[in-house]
Amino acid sequence: MNPLRRLGQLTLDALARLGRMLLFLLHLLPALPLALGRPRLIVQQLYSVGVLSLVIVLVSGGFVGLVLGLQGHNILSNFNATESLGVMVALSLVRELGPVVTALLFAGRAGSALTAEIGLMKATEQLSSMEMMAVDPIRRVIAPRFWAAFIAMPLLAALFSMVGIYGGYFIGVVVLGVDEAAYWSQLVRQVDFDEDTVNGIIKSLVFGFVAAWIALFEGFDARPTSEGVSRATTRTVVNTSLAVLGLDFLLTALMFGNS
C-alpha cells in the first residue's frame, strides 16, 4: 500500500481510538459515584487487582531495594558518603521507582487481566446480556474495577517503596556495614514530606487512574473474538507502560523541575 496512505490511515485510527477512549471516560465518570454505593463489588475487585498483585510488587520492591543499596553503596563509597545511602535509596524509591515500577508491574499483572476479563465478557455476550437485563455494564462491571485499581495503586506503590527501603537497609547496613543510625537519620532528615512523599503518592494516583482507564477501555473496545482480546491485552500493557513513563516525565518536570 502507498506509505503515505498507510500513515494517514494509522493517524486516523489512532485519533478514532483516542476519541472512543474519551467517550468511554465520559460514560464512566458519572457511574463512579454510583458504584461507591456498592462497596462489596469494589472489595471483590480489590482482591483480584490488589491482593493478587501483592506478591509480584513486594518481591520486585525487595530486589529493586537490594540493587539500589548495592549500587548506591558502590558510588557513595567513592565520596566517603555512605551515610547518605538511606537518603539515596529512599528518594529514588519514593519519588520515582515506587510509583513507576509499581505501575509497570500493575499493567502487566492486573491491567492485562482486567482487559482480558472485560474483553472475554464482551466476546461471550455477557456485557450484552447484562444490558438486556437492564443493568448498565459500565456501572456494574467497569466502575468497581476502576475504583479498585485507583485505590490499589498508591497502596501497592507505598508497599513497594517500604520493602525497597528495607532492602537497601539490608544490603547497606547488614551486609556492607553502613552505620544504622546514619542510614535512618539521614533518610528522615532529607526526605521531605510534601516535596517527596506527597508527590510520589500523587504520581501513583495518576498512574492508577490511567492504568485503570486504559485497561478497562481496551477490554471494552476489544473486538469480540479471541484474537481481538489477545491484541487488546497486548495493547493494554504497551500503552499503559508508555503512558506511565511519559506521564512520569511530565509530572517530574512539573513537581521537581523548578527547584
Binding site: 461471550t124 455476550e125 455477557q126 446480556s129 444490558e131 437485563m133 437492564a134 443493568v135
Partner: peptide, 30 residues
C-alpha cells in the same frame, strides 16, 4: 427491558458466578 427476557445463542452466563448467582443476578440488581 426488565419486562423482556433475551436468551442469547451462547447463553452468555456470567462465568465468574455460580448457577445460583447467575439466576439471582437480575433479582439482586433490580
Amino acid at each position: 427491558r426488565k419486562r423482556m427476557g433475551l436468551l442469547f445463542q451462547s447463553g452468555a452466563l456470567f462465568t465468574d458466578l455460580s448457577v445460583f448467582e447467575n439466576v439471582a443476578f437480575p433479582l439482586r440488581e433490580h
